[in-house]
Design a protein around this nucleic acid. Structure first.
Length: 253
DNA sequence: ATGGCCACTCTAAGTGGA
């Protein structure tokens, strides 16, 4: 089973890239973030024509998440239960025997800002909810755009004490791991300076000034089955790319 | 590196992203 995550930064603009990538990589599950569109205009027909089903939770201009899958997605949850939030950032579903939680974590803008406080509140609510989800679904993946680079090696050295790398954000990431989740990327040898996002400005991609902020955290039964985790930088090289690259895991079952 | 980009929006500049 192959499970992927990709912040597409507008599904309207990136739909051709997504369809090409589905055909090339043939993932069983693809989690998308930053759709930036309402459900009424979600391109369901095009995705179905590519051989995928979809559940989605969209929003105009900002946010929006979706799970595309070969097989049916059931027990769908949208938003963090009990957390009052107008921003559409969470969708969860069970596909085959794996619980998939797809999240577009808040950016936070700047350490100490109102948006930073929202990010930490959101992370705390997420953590308590995922604890419950894990009890019900031992085979679980929490994936998406976390907007957190968990360690120094996950950020270009120019990023210091800023948003995405601050101590409170990294502590929140560790709190998720302490639920019994493992950063699949670090199960395997990886290249140095392996990132998943690069700024559109300053030729950041060509110079590899990036961050690793898109993750797949997997529960212990899936750790035992995980044989590969990698970032596919090919879509970042296309004309008019998303600023994020897809990240994938491959499970033996 | 800190800007210079990109997507979006009551199609103008302004907001937000990371």
């Amino acid at each position: 089973m192959k499970i992927a995550t990709w912040n597409v930064n507008s599904l309207k603009v990136r739909l051709p890239h997504v369809l090409d990538w589905l055909a090339a990589e043939q993932p069983d599950v693809l989690c998308l973030q930053e759709l930036k569109m309402e459900d009424s205009v979600f391109p369901l027909a095009e995705i179905q024509a590519a051989g995928y089903q979809a559940v989605f939770h969209g929003q105009k201009t900002y946010n929006g998440v979706a799970i595309l899958s070969r097989h049916a997605a059931v027990d769908v949850i949208k938003d963090i239960p009990g957390f009052d939030d107008p921003q559409k950032r969470i969708i969860a579903a069970t596909i085959d025997d794996v619980r998939v939680i797809c999240g577009y974590f808040p950016n936070g803008q700047a350490v100490g800002s109102d948006k930073f406080a929202y990010k930490l509140d959101w992370l705390a609510a997420l953590t308590e909810w995922v604890r419950d989800e894990l009890r019900q679904h031992p085979r679980l993946v929490l994936t998406g755009d976390f907007n957190i680079a968990p360690e120094d090696r996950d950020a270009h050295p120019a990023w210091k004490d800023e948003i995405h790398v601050s101590a409170p954000e990294r502590a929140a990431f560790v709190a998720l791991e302490l639920l019994g989740l493992t950063d699949a990327f670090r199960l395997f040898d990886q290249d140095d300076k392996a990132f998943s996002w690069w700024d559109y400005r300053m030729n950041a991609f060509e110079r590899n000034f990036g961050l690793r902020i898109d993750h797949l955290l997997i529960s212990d039964p899936l750790v035992a089955e995980c044989r590969r985790c990698w970032t596919d930088t090919a879509p970042r090289k296309l004309e008019r790319p998303s600023d994020h690259a897809p990240v994938l895991i491959e499970l033996t079952k």
